[in-house]
């Protein structure tokens, strides 16, 4: 049984349909990347998995075999899916430490503690009492990842980690990924930077206009094949 499975997943915003039957399966311990152009439905997919958007049928999404399509976000995180939201979204009136503590609000047991989060991102330890809006973009991204890890998730969803960050900062952030994987955490990463995605992922799904157009292991995918799946030309 896969850790996460979506089956012909259909979802959208009100009358606007964004996902047209997305099927994917993610195994325990894998790192899977989803690539695709703007508007391909990548973020919608993550928002549906974590419960912020409702899928049309509750059984569209299964986590550990349990249908989670009709659960609330706070129930889903308690089951072990944490999200690093697009745009990082630190709580502006909380300092760094309180932001991290919020991540542990659901009290799931596991390897991640404040100390471990600070060890993973020493930058945050130095600024633990700083208010989150005073952090740099990279530090805010580290904070968002640390906050999600504090929930001790089995599955970590990362939405656009590299958005708006300098290449050197992106490298720092991706340098933390092996440490996260080493705890057995499964990663589902949405990434616009295709090269980055191909390098970090065990498997890649490419999406276009709300559908999966290509999937496979990075080594086995050809350049033209990806280009076709990505742009549809």
């Amino acid at each position: 049984m896969s850790l996460l499975q979506t089956e012909e997943l259909v979802a959208g915003y009100g009358d606007f349909q964004a996902l047209f039957g997305v099927s994917l399966a993610i195994e325990r311990g894998e790192t899977v990347a989803i690539i695709g152009a703007n508007g391909a439905g990548k973020s919608t997919l993550l928002r549906t998995i974590c419960g912020l958007l409702r899928s049309r049928r509750p059984t569209d999404v299964r986590f550990d075999g349990i249908p989670i399509g009709s659960l609330e976000p706070e129930q889903i995180v308690a089951l072990g899916i944490a999200m690093v939201p697009e745009g990082r979204r630190p709580f502006p009136s909380l300092n760094v430490e309180d932001n991290l503590r919020m991540g542990a609000y659901c009290h799931r047991a596991g390897p991640w503690t404040l100390e471990r989060a600070y060890a993973l991102f020493p930058n945050l330890a130095e600024r633990r009492f700083a208010m989150s809006p005073t952090l740099s973009g990279g530090q805010q991204q580290m904070l968002a990842i640390g906050r999600a890890l504090m929930a001790n998730p089995k599955l970590l969803l990362c939405d656009e980690l590299s958005l708006g960050l300098a290449p050197i900062v992106i490298r720092d952030i991706y340098a933390a990924m092996p440490g996260i994987r080493a705890e057995g955490t499964t990663l589902l990463i949405v990434e616009q930077d295709i090269q980055r995605a191909l390098r970090v992922a065990d498997r890649v799904y490419c999406m276009q206009k709300g559908r999966v157009t290509l999937q496979g292991r990075p080594r086995e995918l050809g350049r033209d094949e990806i280009k076709l799946a990505y742009f549809g030309v």
């Binding site: 974590c50 419960g51 912020l52 609330e72 976000p73 706070e74 995180v77 308690a78 944490a82 999200m83 939201p85 979204r89 709580f91 502006p92 009136s93 909380l94 309180d98 919020m102 991540g103 609000y105 659901c106 906050r147 999600a148 929930a151």
Partner: peptide, 15 residues
Amino acid sequence: RATSDDIDTARLCGV
């Protein structure tokens, strides 16, 4: 405080 800041993100934290 977190919910006052950002409802969706607070819910993602389990609130």
